[in-house]
Amino acid sequence: MNVIINYFKDIFQGVWSLIQGMRVTGYYFFHPRQIVTQQYPENRDKLVMFERFKGEVIMPHDENNQHRCTGCGICEINCPNGSIEILTETVINEEGKKEKRIDKHIYHLSMCTFCGLCVKTCPSDALAWGNEFEHAVYDRHKLTKVLNQPGSSLKKEPKSTAKEIKA
């Protein structure tokens, strides 16, 4: 007799457990407000990335088209993948002295692993993270970028302010 009771008990318990699961899915079916889908291209205007989002490495320029990169090459050394190349040139400045300054700060986005060491180690805080994430292009070479804008120059600032910013 026990066998028979257990047999039916098994069936009822099994069916009950199935109903429990169906309650969960049923609940969500009738509560469409719980939907979490983001309709991406449509919500592009409203889409705000977190401020620290690592989209790509950028070199911020101020309104005078000036950046802080001195061309020291520390980011190049610290990049594990060789995705940063720095081309410097030697020019003669107003005082008549030879000065080394940056010609091109080349950034291969296609090789970047977003480890953040270049931004972290930059002594003059010239690099930062950009929020741009739509990097898809048809030609791989378009992923190689020159970070310093054409015609830009090094921002001259007293050493103390540079330190303050760093702190």
Partner: peptide
């Protein structure tokens, strides 16, 4: 996703953090 958002807010990446 909620955890990844926490990660993203703090260090900018969702999967490979370094």
């Amino acid at each position: 996703e909620k955890i990844l958002d926490i990660f993203e807010e703090s260090f900018g990446s969702r999967l490979l953090h370094s």
